[in-house]
Design a binder for these strands. Sequence first.
DNA 1: CTGAAAGCGCTTACAG
DNA 2: CTGAAAGCGCTTACAG
Lengths: 351, 351
Amino acid sequence: MKKVTAHDVARLAEVSQSAVSRAFTPGASVAPDTRERIEKAARKLGYRPNAIARSLITRRSRIIGLVMSYLENQFYPVVIERLCQALQRDGYHVLLFISQTEDADEVLTDILQYQVDGIVMASTTLSSALASDCQNAGIPVVLFNRVAQLGAMGAYSTSSVTSQNREGGRMVGELLLRTGHRRIAWLAGAEKTSTSRDREAGLCDALAAAGLALHARGVGNYDFAEARRAVHLLFRDPASRPDALFAANDHMAIAALETLRTELGLRVPHDVSVVGFDNVPQAAWPSFDLTTVQQNIDEMVDATRNLLFDQLGGQVMARSIDVPCVLMERGTVARRDDEPGRKPGRARQPA
Amino acid sequence: MKKVTAHDVARLAEVSQSAVSRAFTPGASVAPDTRERIEKAARKLGYRPNAIARSLITRRSRIIGLVMSYLENQFYPVVIERLCQALQRDGYHVLLFISQTEDADEVLTDILQYQVDGIVMASTTLSSALASDCQNAGIPVVLFNRVAQLGAMGAYSTSSVTSQNREGGRMVGELLLRTGHRRIAWLAGAEKTSTSRDREAGLCDALAAAGLALHARGVGNYDFAEARRAVHLLFRDPASRPDALFAANDHMAIAALETLRTELGLRVPHDVSVVGFDNVPQAAWPSFDLTTVQQNIDEMVDATRNLLFDQLGGQVMARSIDVPCVLMERGTVARRDDEPGRKPGRARQPA
DNA sequence: CTGAAAGCGCTTACAG
DNA sequence: CTGAAAGCGCTTACAG
């Protein structure tokens, strides 16, 4: 029941407590036979160095705070898993916080008390006030899958790791155009997130290059039920029904698929094409076979790790890294070239 | 950049460091105006008490270690989310560890160094040797969704929270029997897990009560791809094809659904009924509409919290709690009463 | 290589 | 109510 400390081990091994500490510090100089005596005593007593005490004196906790807001989207569990494993490999550990909202400010006060060495925020952002607090405290923050909103002054920026979302959106736009779609609808995520905005911007880039604009636009707020409602609205009028729907993430794309098939009696991709973003595990399930844009999680995790550790060292400037994403063509996009009754210039706008 | 400590605040507020500490300790006695001065100074300096230092002196970290092994099964992300939130409400935090295997021994050494106040292990178990280590160290451990394997001596037992898995299995068996199924197959999870064994036992209880036995049995090891292979084997021979398949969890049930429909050309539930266990979010999606047994996560989380906190107090004995689960009847089970060519006694065994 | 000593930032009896 | 002091379990110069 009593916790065994380095002193106890020292006593048993007949050395000083300092020696015990050295024996457990990689690279410290201890004579081989001393080390052996210490290790034997430690084993006998079941001694484990107290990481809390070590953190206090070294002023590094080897803990990274991870803030998440919702795990229903299967993308995030995968992120947690990969990130934890990567960090564990480096001898770091993850203190997990669930924030109810995208704005993680209140959770942060908590985190900071734990003297984390760094913070990664996935699917959440923080106010520029708190970002500057962290900067002052010398705690690196990296946003995962979000980009910092520039503060009023643009004064504090936070490092971030994302996919090349705009490029990804553009790829989808081009695919849809190439396969003959003309009435392309966009299903937005949370409007203020960079992911949703950038992907939409990319889509619009592609459309604009072809002299087109968005045919319609709904907001699903990255939520299953809201996406369902938005799809109902988007497809309410048969006369102006979209021929393709690009959802800001797979979670909503799947909601759309379910709604289109089950509630609206439309066939995908025969009547409508659907594309998502993320490439969550379910996208590959035969029931969905969803065409989507794959976010390269391993590369994103790696970039996060690197940003974190670079900034742990010294006072490095915030940096943003965006990793390429790749189009995963599966079964939810049809070719519409030969679609009967198609009116090519229908949605065309004057440049 | 410099960290601000209680001393800094004390100096500015012109009080002792002890006073500052008291001002941040709920229930400690500080004069109102002193407290005000301190709070003002703290605000000005951006002071946040160092939780690490506090942990060292109070010998309670208010950190709970959470060990998980695989998050692909959507049941676990939901568990993480609820458990984190519940613990955060109590002022505790979660240090998350991902273990590659069901056996979490190696990860535990790590955890123990962090002086966690308690450990919850979900989808993992630990050796009785380590369980006894934890017991000696006074660190409560509760298994979530697993039950302790009794050690060789039966000496150390670990607290656990599960659903009433056997009862759940029995309910499924009875449902299947009631709806006229006779050739009932079982798709096991990982064979050594209590969940898989208990659910199977419940199913067999129900069958035995009707004078039946398992028609066939496969092993999916709680894995999507393995479940798929097992389903192929189970349905290889058309002559002895099961009329119902009960999978040890939804993750495998969905794999079975996909395989049955896409690769084997069977209709569910027309040709085969399928039942799962967990009631993960996807089970409710129209594409699956999976009949399953719902695990009551909130109650399980609550029980976990209570077990943890009971044992935090004193030297309470390990306890096991099993919470009721409920049958969720959806669309993957058919009535087979009027099935043409059915042979009622086909699989009947002598008692 | 090894030990005595200072100190990380707190909490908490103990006096006053 | 408040302060001086001890101490949580370590690490790390500093001498030797």
